[in-house]
Design a protein around this nucleic acid. Structure first.
Lengths: 136, 136
DNA sequence: TCTTTATCCTATTAAACCGATAGGCAAACA
DNA sequence: TGTTTGCCTATCGGTTTAATAGGATAAAGA
């Protein structure tokens, strides 16, 4: 299951992507429009900014804005920042790999091989979707 | 991420599927062979039995055995019992559907539609894999 | 029948995680 | 200089997870 952090993060980014002008959008505006706790959203947007997806502006008429064009923001990258690994098991993760303590041989592990297939499929989807692709 | 309950459960089932004869396998045997805490595995196998995947026999020479042929055990069903929803968001789940509190319209929700695609893909994989398919 | 061997079952625990909140600081701008 | 906004850290309550404890129950065999 996806954390609501991820859900909120993506929703916020799509909201910014839908804006016509490039002027900053305030946290409060997004929070109200997407029904998200403002304080919680604050911390999520901070994460996204530090990850390089968003820019920010302080003070009056400040807010957040997309750093790149929606077409250039891959969902794979967004998912990895917000949710962490895309794989269902650490031993098939590309970016968060970890060996299973209990498993002597990955190559003959049924779980490993099954989840490898799932990961490949999911990754293909996220790799081929940009932020621009998912706004309807 | 997959819970280790699911991982252990699948490993235990593949272990039983690999047995040549149909005589019961004891929890201790599986636990030792797969490096799983015996007590914890006990509760997992109990769940699997109650879900109709396993049969059991008490007393001496007792243990657990597969109720059906490995070919007839779909991974979709195993996953749903052990892990719960296959979908990443409740609002795209077939068996565990739940409406998002914050979302006014699912059809225009970017997260919803993206995760719908992921769910379809993952489901296809699990639907086409039996326990027999995943043992190497 | 008695003992051993195994599953059955409920309750409990410790740790981790998650969503959310609190509250002050820092910068921008009018 | 005051107001508005994001910045940042700390903390909280609740839930889930992985694992453990301990006894009840049933079967097999001596």
């Amino acid at each position: 299951m996806l954390s609501s952090k991820t859900k909120y993060g993506i929703k916020a980014m799509t909201f910014m992507a839908k804006q016509e002008s490039k002027i900053p959008v305030q946290i409060a505006t997004i929070a109200k429009h997407e029904n998200i706790s403002q304080k919680y959203l604050e911390s999520i947007l901070l994460t996204l900014r530090k990850a390089g997806f968003l820019g920010s502006k302080k003070g009056k008429n400040g807010g957040y804005y997309l750093f790149k064009n929606p077409e250039d923001i891959k969902m794979t990258d967004v998912m990895r920042v917000l949710e962490g690994p895309i794989a269902l098991v650490p031993c098939v993760s590309l970016n968060f790999y970890e060996k299973c303590a209990d498993c002597p041989d990955e190559n003959t592990c049924a779980v490993h091989n099954l989840m490898l297939e799932v990961r490949d499929n999911t990754l293909t989807i996220f790799n081929n979707k940009s932020l621009a692709d998912i706004i309807s």
